[in-house]
Amino acid sequence: MSEAMRKPETNGAPPVISVRGIDMVFLKKAPGVLDGLARRAGLPRPEPVGVHALDGVDLDVMKGEVVGLVGESGCGKSTLGRVIAGILDPTAGTFRFHGREMSEMSPQERYRAKVAVQMIFQDPFASLNPRKRVIDIIGEAPVVHGIVPKAEISDYVDEIMLKCGIDPAFKQRFPHQFSGGQRQRIGIARALAVKPQFLVCDESVAALDVSIQAQVINLFMDLRRDFDLTYLFISHDLGVVEHIADRVVIMYLGRVVETAPTAELYANPRHPYTQALLANMPRISTEKQAFGQIKGEIPSPLNPPSGCHFHPRCPFAFDRCVAERPRLITKAPGIAAACHLLEEAAR
């Protein structure tokens, strides 16, 4: 891919997707009638217990850009993907599509904005309806959304299947007749069929074998060129993200801890968590790797540590980290990290 292809053209246009201050709290138990009555009467009730899956997350994705979203289990990366894909409604925060807030849009515009953002899932076995034929899996949505007339759907599905590398002769088959890699291609074809501008790929290559994974990653890169797509690529695999993304966002327990252009982030990680992730990333080399520089486990998001969420595992933590939440500090355009050390160093 040429250098020009990789550079997203901004030209001052607003980002395709822009979210600000997104909070997502999953309550353990939904508030009941009693809670409602008590609140109205001004009586104290116990605070509802909830998981703070996203805690004030900001994210911009420019047109044509591939943003890699990286983090370990429970960091909220999938939740953020689902919020952006419109599957979950956030507890708080604003969501702008091409610079316009969702709530300002007319119902028709909002509907179109939602169709323009599609999602590709991790498990190619669970994400396809086992009782539907491929032609219906791919062809149903474009007919429902009025993108393609019903009479032309068969040819349209052929075209999309070819683009995704599946033989259109198989369109009368059921999902169980395909291998994992082919099923993932069907999932991609289904998402592309409604002509989206933006794809959220949630661990979309994690379940595939290495050689099949390479085929699907290549497909993602071809489709980006052919359909002028923008991706939010969610993954725990730092190698895959390094390969495909233009910019990387690292999350830890519901917060963004660092964001930077890919080459910069991998060459010069600023947050201690990013440094630990990169040091522990298995890579093909001829030398033995020293693993395990980071101690401890990921804390439960039900009861996150105070201050900086990473401080119990951080080798550089000092008293301020326990008390105060670090802000995301912009070190250079497009490069930001949330760590008190950066502020102390700047002083």
Binding site: E72, S73, H236, L238, A276, L277, A279, N280, M281, P282, A290, F291, G292, Q293, I294, K295, E297, I298
Partner: peptide, 12 residues
């Protein structure tokens, strides 16, 4: 397992 946990186990 997650990357950091995997690394701990590999090292052990």
């Amino acid at each position: 397992l997650d990357v950091t946990i995997q690394a701990q186990i590999l090292s052990e």
